[in-house]
Design a protein around this nucleic acid. Structure first.
Length: 150
DNA sequence: GCCAACGTTGGC
DNA sequence: GCCAACGTTGGC
């Protein structure tokens, strides 16, 4: 089982929105590093942090469970869709998505500023590479953050 | 809203 | 395949 961190702008879609639905398709990712992780590595039964970016309280807001492997994303084929990709074909899709479901909202956001201060978390992708919207989390990092959330 | 850091595009 | 120009992300 693997752990992940998923960024979202809460003004667009937040942990509270996730809590309202049975499941949700995490799509519209248009970054090759993230795409490769989704296509090749994300599996049913993995868990992920939901991270709120570009907002007042930047940080980790809660936990979701991954409930599908990576699957071909549909928006890329839809000319009406903002994320339509004219270079993608059914035979050669470019982008991938996956399904997830809400597990838990933390009582308080775990702030990025706190994460950056922890020596145990200094190797987190979040600290090293700001811009990756789907990123792996190691088990020690996951456990360390979970402990703080309690 | 600014702007640094990073990713993508496209001419050569 | 290099790299300059451009676009986007995302913290502050």
């Amino acid at each position: 089982m693997a752990y992940w961190l998923l960024k979202t702008e809460p003004d667009e879609y937040s942990i509270d929105d996730l809590a309202k639905v049975d499941s949700f398709c995490w799509d519209e990712i248009r970054n090759y590093q993230a795409r490769n992780l989704i296509r090749d590595q994300i599996k049913t039964g993995d868990f992920a942090f939901i991270y709120h970016s570009s907002c007042k309280q930047v940080g980790i807001a809660g936990i979701v469970e991954i409930i599908s492997d990576g699957e071909i994303e549909q928006a890329q084929f839809n000319p009406e869709h903002a994320k339509f990709d004219p270079k993608a074909t059914q035979e050669k899709p470019k982008w991938y998505s996956f399904q997830l479901k809400f597990k838990q909202k933390f009582n308080r956001i775990i702030p990025l500023s706190w994460i950056k201060q922890q020596p145990e978390l200094e190797d987190m992708v979040l600290c090293k590479q700001g811009r990756l919207s789907v990123q792996p989390v190691t088990q020690p990092q996951w456990q360390f953050i979970i402990a703080r959330a309690k």
